[in-house]
Amino acid sequence: MKISEIEQKEIIKGFKGRFLHTASFTIAFWEIDAGSILPLHSHIHEQTTQVIEGEFEMTLNGETKRYTPGTILSIPSNAEHQGKAITNCKITDIFSPVREDYK
């Protein structure tokens, strides 16, 4: 299967994702428009965020950092986080357990 063959869904304004679900995790392949905002939130899922292209600013537990291609961030379960796409971005997230809300 090609990632480009997975149906794309806009989950938040400017955040368009393609999702692969297994029995225990979800992989999200995001295309994010520059300037798009990820509101402050938390969830039960553990998450890793890897920047593939672009520059993304993430605030995790009150600490803000900018992430560029090749960087990865680990977000623990229930940790508050928010973000902003500084440029157009491609980001890959892995969530465990499965993101039922992304199905």
Rank of each mutant, 00 (worst) to 15 (best):
I32L: 04
R99S: 00
I6C: 14
H43C: 13
H43P: 07
N78C: 15
E63L: 15
T22N: 05
D93T: 06
I11W: 10
Q47F: 04
H45G: 00
P76D: 07
E53W: 03
P39K: 09
S96Q: 02
T49C: 08
A34L: 10
M1F: 15
N78W: 07
P69V: 01
I12A: 05
E53V: 09
I44S: 07
I3F: 01
I6Q: 02
V51C: 02
A28N: 03
F19S: 00
L20F: 03
E5M: 10
I94V: 14
N78S: 04
L60F: 06
T48V: 15
E31S: 07
I12F: 11
I3G: 00
I75W: 01
E31M: 00
S74F: 15
E5T: 09
T26A: 00
L38W: 11
I11L: 15
H41C: 09
A28F: 00
L38V: 12
I12K: 08
E31R: 02
S74M: 14
L40G: 10
Y67W: 06
S96H: 03
V98W: 01
V98S: 04
E63W: 15
S74D: 10
I86T: 06
Q50T: 14
P76V: 11
T64G: 10
I11V: 14
K13M: 06
I52M: 11
T48P: 06
H41F: 07
T49H: 10
K16W: 13
S96F: 02
G54A: 07
I37K: 10
I37L: 08
T64E: 02
T59A: 14
T49W: 09
G83R: 02
A79I: 06
E100M: 09
Q47E: 06
I72N: 11
G17A: 09
P69R: 04
I44G: 12
I75N: 00
R18S: 04
T64Y: 01
A23D: 07
H41M: 12
L40H: 11
A79M: 07
I11H: 11
A85F: 07
K13D: 15
F25V: 03
I27Q: 02
M1G: 15
E46L: 03
T92V: 15
I72H: 11
Q47T: 06
E63I: 13
K84D: 03
